[in-house]
Write a protein that binds this DNA or RNA. Sequence first.
RNA 1: CGGGGCGUCGUAUACCGGUAGUACGCUUGCUUUGGGAGCAAGAUGACCCAGUCCGAUUCUGGGCGCCCCGACCA
Length: 419
Amino acid sequence: MRQSQLFTKTRREAPQGEVSKNAQLLIRAGYVHKEMAGAYTYLLLGHRVLQKIIGVIRDEMNKIGGQEVFMTSLQDPELWAKTGRWSDEAVDIWFKSQLKAGGDVGLAWSHEEPLTSLMREHISSYRDLPRYVYQFQTKFRNEMRAKSGIMRTREFIMKDLYSFSTTEADFRKFYELCAQAYLAIFNRVGIGEQTYRTFASGGSFSKFSDEFQTVSEAGEDFIYVDEGKRIAVNKEVYNPEVLTELGLDKNNLKEMKAIEVGNIFPLGTRFSDALGLTYKDEEGKEHPVIMGCYGIGPGRLMGTIVETLSDDKGIVWPKSIAPFQVHLIELSNGNADVHNEAQELYRELTEAGVEVLWDDRDARAGEKFADSDLIGIPLRVVVSEKTLAAGKFECTQRSSGKTEYMSLPDLTESLAHAE
RNA sequence: CGGGGCGUCGUAUACCGGUAGUACGCUUGCUUUGGGAGCAAGAUGACCCAGUCCGAUUCUGGGCGCCCCGACCA
């Protein structure tokens, strides 16, 4: 991608009143545009990052047997009435509308009801179980107050997986498998170290659930962390019995602020009972299907990564989800040789499958470097009269600031080995 | 939903009951060129509605929008 053609521009200043770090940086660098409170458009750079995050999640979900679908956002009130979740008293974040043809319709804020109902057509025997179905889908939640940049919005993409099992033991096995997959995801997107599996309230479905909390000052939750055991307890269930049950010692726990980046919980038979999702066992006896639900918001995850990994100059993307792998900075100042060299390098890297953002703009070095730091692509490669004379390229890691001169083979080699 | 703050060129900010200023960005020209350049010349602005007033961007009321704190948060 030639930066001179990129329709977004960087900004020197954050919008008035925007306090949230992720919103400030993502808007300044041209990743997102705020359409209204709690509603963001992902621009070219932001969309690329979001898709890469989704790619990582998809990979891990497929590894544990997930089957991807894409459900509709429009929701049938009758279905939700059966579980008691259509009324505004029960669920106060509904976006509701009317069909021109008559009747109400809702915009999905979750998908337990339609998926459970749909699975009745496909599950009738123990032979049909277990099944794990997931999607990346837009959720609408009419929040009283959107906040924290892209972290709490009224419309957002969510990866929601639902598990369907015969027995509680089978369900538990998958639940643990999914918890491990979640940890793998957070590792791969660069926040594994700061992210803790956290014991939390189960809300209306079960006694407890597991959250995945990333330690950050931008967080909304307080958790008690045991750094040695790498687990935590949410403040909402922090009490002596829980500590005993989890084998945690109060003296080893530290209170920290954290962002909830994922949540998994048992659904039991709440939805299968209400909507009639059953299977027949070997003896022909009918049982309700045991369900679980597993969510991650890729947008919130992106915001969390920005909050966690940025520095005073801008964003520092991990390689796994950066919008481009290389930021090629051409400092030609009208020198045709330098320009040709940059063009040639761009061609070589692109042909080798490397994603390159090529800053071919007619701008000064300082501005290009400042923009490059702000945008946060992991490797910056400078081509200038200096590097031309040296016969090598100047390569700087965004994360460490370390610079080394590399030949093209060295460069492609190091990119191939980079995670 | 309770409380607080704020709406001024594209962006960020000043000032003001009577001609709205600055910086960046943008346009044109010249110079400059490794960490957000300089000079010169330009273009572009008061959220909406009502009221007070000779006159409102400024004061008053209402609306709409944005941000923050709280409540809420499968």
